[in-house]
Amino acid sequence: MEDTALHLDGSAGPGGKAQSTSPVEHPYAGMWVTADGYIRHALLANGRYDEARGRRRSAYRGRYWIVGDHIEYLDDTGFTADGDFRDGVLYHAGMVLYREAS
């Protein structure tokens, strides 16, 4: 597993390391949703995420870093979370999210 994030907006990553200022495409960018469609989690190519819950758009927003198959989140309000990608599924904070078909 690599020790650097794949992309970010130029700020320091979870380990305090400065990251690249230019976005890098990665296989996990895109929309991830729960099976019932209630939670919609957009991983943007610029290192930001935007999570909708039900009819509430942008319920949570912030930055994220991906190291290998692990994702770390820093919400704009300051709380942190993490998750893991396994076999094409995102396991995050007790939720199971699937990539939305494009």
Rank of each mutant, 00 (worst) to 15 (best):
E2S: 10
E2D: 14
T4D: 09
A5T: 04
L6C: 08
L6W: 08
H7A: 09
H7Y: 07
D9L: 01
D9M: 02
S11T: 08
S11N: 12
S11V: 05
S11W: 02
A12P: 11
G13A: 09
G15W: 11
G15T: 14
G15I: 05
G16R: 13
K17M: 12
K17A: 15
A18D: 09
T21E: 13
T21G: 10
T21R: 15
S22G: 10
P23H: 01
P23K: 03
E25F: 04
E25W: 04
H26G: 05
H26T: 10
Y28Q: 10
A29N: 07
G30N: 05
G30C: 05
M31C: 10
V33P: 11
V33I: 15
T34Y: 06
T34Q: 10
D36V: 09
G37C: 04
G37A: 02
Y38V: 15
Y38F: 13
R40T: 14
A42V: 11
A42S: 15
A42H: 15
N46T: 02
G47D: 00
G47I: 00
G47R: 00
R48N: 03
R48W: 04
D50N: 13
D50G: 12
A52P: 08
G54S: 09
R55S: 15
R55I: 13
R55G: 14
R56L: 08
R56H: 13
R57I: 07
R57D: 09
A59P: 13
Y60G: 05
R61M: 01
G62R: 00
R63I: 00
Y64L: 02
W65M: 06
I66H: 00
I66G: 04
I66C: 04
I66Y: 06
D69F: 01
I71A: 07
I71L: 14
I71P: 09
E72W: 03
E72L: 07
E72K: 05
Y73M: 06
Y73D: 03
L74N: 01
T77K: 15
G78N: 04
F79N: 06
T80R: 15
T80G: 11
D82K: 01
D82L: 03
D82F: 06
G83T: 06
G83Q: 02
D84S: 12
D84M: 14
R86H: 06
D87F: 03
G88N: 03
Y91K: 11
Y91G: 12
Y91T: 12
H92A: 02
M95Q: 14
V96Y: 07
Y98C: 10
R99Q: 15
R99P: 13
E100W: 11
S102G: 14
